[in-house]
Design a protein around this nucleic acid. Structure first.
Length: 644
RNA sequence: GCCGUUGUAGCUCAGAGGUAGAGCACUUCCUUGGUAAGGAAGAGGUCGUGAGUUCAAUUCUCAUCAACGGCUCCA
């Protein structure tokens, strides 16, 4: 007999060789029907696999991440079986589960899969799922496994086998499909009741663009049709919140073929938001002791040779233009210009820290396939600043920057974010990263300590640093689940040397400063793209392009409406009057659709009492106020940048 | 840059080898209406761009540009 320990601490005895499924059945039949996979001593196991020694056990259902992962992994195998049935002879690479669904990478040889084929494959999957085929685990000797795939001529699985140790190799078979697989899997295909193949994509083998491109098919499955339907509805809802759709509907930005890909034309409504963000940044930075500067959009080649950017990033810069025998590049970053400003006059320790800020315009030649709405563009406006400081000042300055991030997040109601401490990769020193191993370790430790001391939760990721130093990237998720780096806070130990920057210290000796690069509001492009999705287009009043729309009941009250408008304008409110000869119902409907925060309805009653009827977007009528009261309230709401 | 899909009016979309349609938006007229669409008339498109096949192409073929779903990349 062996002892099985349950999550609640209870221990029960079973015969050696008992399976997790047997154990579940011994507890309740209902549970046995629901569970998909088991956790045995913190490893995820097949339900049928014999347990031979004392163990702790957890039983996972669809509601657990382990359950979903296994379910989707098994679904990938089911899809592979269907594909092999339809297209005999294709070769499979890997088919892992994702946060939502799964994919399988396939070498189709000369064949092509179209979207019509997806429908066929779905049908086949449904047919196979109904057969309740059991996922059978088989342990294989490495030699046997190699023989099997050599026979099959499958170079992909042979490649996988190279990195696997003998004694650790398992195959899984369901129906007519056998795959090299670590497992585990759900008991049988019958659990998979609803299937949707989502799209076909190319994916480089092993993620390397130099390798052959395989065909990747994405899909998702559920234990019930209803869950699939709900998921598809959720996808539709997410599309409504897409910043590209909202950006068009709300007149925020546009693009034009004659202007060029990735070059944003900000429409008047977008420009208002930009102005507001810059106002916020300028206020905040001035209070934090920054000085503002303005620099040109281009510079001579030599500047980027000095900075060291060119060898690393030439591909991402617009090709140089040659004038008077000199090459000029559009700037892809503001740092070198700022360094030259620092260096324009001699500095002493009394000048430090020296903080230079600019909403700098940068141009980056992103590959065509990487462009994405406002999130990846070729001309961007960065909330940039560089802080030149002594080693002693570093921790305090770095912390002050992090605090600024947190302050902004509070204003915008951003609560889902991760600070990612992005480190260098020792194997890529001299290629992707400046070859200064000790300085890397030293500055990484400096940053780590600041984060620890300010109790900011963070994760460390190797190989994500800038080429000149470690950084903190702020990863955020928009309301529709899109993850990206919103802002960045970087340490730079390389450029000060390259630019020979120095200040005179207290001992009258030259000393090299450290530089902090920071951009808490990222770029206007990405930040506004994020805000559109974050607020679903319903901006807080201070950011709303149009803050108030006055809706007269009829033209008889137009004069009064215009008088109210003038009063509001004098108080600094962005306001318009709907002067059209339309019924009030239509005016309200259109104002609601355009997401104006406040609608003021004015008619007989209001005009005679010097009042207005206030309607809040999304909330409906909230009653009458005197004009003065309303002006006072909205002015406060704007001044303090209140969140809704 | 690579794989796949798409490109018709300002927007959302129908459509066919014989040189185009709807709804909304827009213009004009009627209506002066109290919290999410009042009515009528009108105007608006070299069917992304270039070439080829054809008596004829916006429709078929090829190329190209752009957008979209992914991959790669993201200072």
């Amino acid at each position: 007999m062996i002892n099985i320990r349950f999550p609640d601490g209870a221990v029960r005895q079973y015969e050696a060789g008992v399976s997790a499924m047997d154990i579940a059945k011994s507890i309740s039949e209902g549970l046995a029907k629901k569970i998909l996979v088991a956790g045995v001593n913190d490893q995820v196991w097949d339900l049928s696999r014999p347990i031979t020694s004392d163990s702790s056990i957890k039983l996972f259902t669809w509601n657990d991440a382990e359950g979903k992962n296994t379910f989707w992994h098994s679904s990938a195998h089911l899809m592979a079986e269907a594909i092999e049935a339809k297209f005999p002879g294709v070769k499979f690479w890997v088919g892992p589960p994702l946060d939502n669904g799964f994919y399988y990478d396939i070498d189709l040889g000369d064949r092509k899969i179209t979207e019509e084929d997806l429908v066929e494959i779905e049908k086949k999957m449904n047919e196979l799922a109904k057969q309740n085929n059991v996922y059978i685990r088989t342990e294989k000797a490495k030699a046997d496994a190699i023989a099997y795939f050599t026979e099959k001529g499958d170079e992909y699985k042979l490649d996988l086998l190279q990195n696997l140790e003998d004694g650790n190799i398992t195959f899984y078979t369901q129906g007519n499909f056998t795959d090299l697989c670590r497992g585990p899997h759900i008991p049988h295909t019958g659990f998979i009741k609803a299937i949707k193949l989502l799209n076909i994509a190319g994916a480089y083998w092993k993620g390397d663009e130099k390798n052959k491109q395989l065909t990747r098919i994405y899909g998702i499955t559920f234990p019930t049709q209803k869950e699939l339907d709900d998921y598809l509805i959720m996808l539709e809802e997410a599309k409504k919140r897409d910043h590209r759709k909202l950006g068009k509907e709300l007149g925020i930005y546009t693009m034009n073929d004659d202007v060029g890909p990735g070059l944003i034309l900000w429409l008047p409504n977008g420009a208002v938001i930009i102005e507001e963000l810059e106002k916020l940044a300028k206020e905040t930075e001035e209070a934090a002791g920054y000085k503002r500067v303005v620099t040109p959009h281009l510079a001579k080649e030599n500047l980027y040779l000095t900075s060291g950017h060119l060898p690393y990033y030439a591909d991402s810069m617009f090709a140089p233009m040659e004038m008077d025998g000199e090459k000029y590049y559009l700037k892809a970053m503001n740092c070198p210009h700022h360094h030259k400003i620092f260096d324009a006059e001699p500095k002493s320790y009394r000048d430090m820290p020296y903080r230079l800020a600019e909403y700098g315009t940068c141009y980056r030649y992103e590959q065509s396939g990487e462009l994405f709405g406002l999130m990846r563009v070729r001309c961007l406006h960065m909330n940039d600043a560089h802080i030149y400081c002594t080693k002693e000042q570093f921790a305090q300055e770095f912390k002050a920057v992090n605090d600024m991030y947190l302050k902004y997040f509070e204003i915008f109601g951003i609560d889902k974010y991760v600070m990612r401490l992005s480190l260098h990769d020792p194997e890529k020193l001299g290629q992707k990263y400046i070859n200064e191993p000790e300085l890397w370790l030293e500055t990484e430790e400096l940053v780590r300590n600041v984060l620890k001391e300010s109790n900011i939760p963070f994760v460390e990721v190797k190989g994500e640093g800038a080429f000149y130093g470690p950084k903190i990237d702020v990863q955020i998720w928009s309301a529709i689940g899109r993850e990206f780096t919103l802002a960045t806070n970087q340490v730079d130990f390389a450029q000060p040397r390259r630019f020979k920057l120095s200040f005179t210290n207290q001992n009258n000796e030259p000393e090299i400063p450290l530089i902090i690069h920071r951009a808490p509001l990222g770029t206007h492009e990405r930040f506004i793209g994020f805000l559109l999705e974050h607020y679903a287009g319903k901006f807080p009043v201070w950011l709303a392009p149009l803050q108030v729309k006055i809706l007269p009941i009829s033209d008889k009250f137009l004069d009064y409406a215009i008088a109210v408008k003038t009063t509001l304008q004098k108080a600094g409110v962005r306001v318009e009057v709907d002067e059209r000869q339309e019924k009030i119902g239509k005016k309200i409907r259109e104002a609601e659709i355009s997401k104006v925060p406040y609608m003021l309805i004015v008619g007989e009653k209001e005009a005679s009492e010097n009042k207005i009827s206030v309607r809040r977007h999304g909330k409906g009528d909230i009653g009458q106020l005197s004009v003065d009261e309303f002006v006072h309230n909205i002015a406060e709401e704007i001044k303090y940048r209140k969140a809704d």
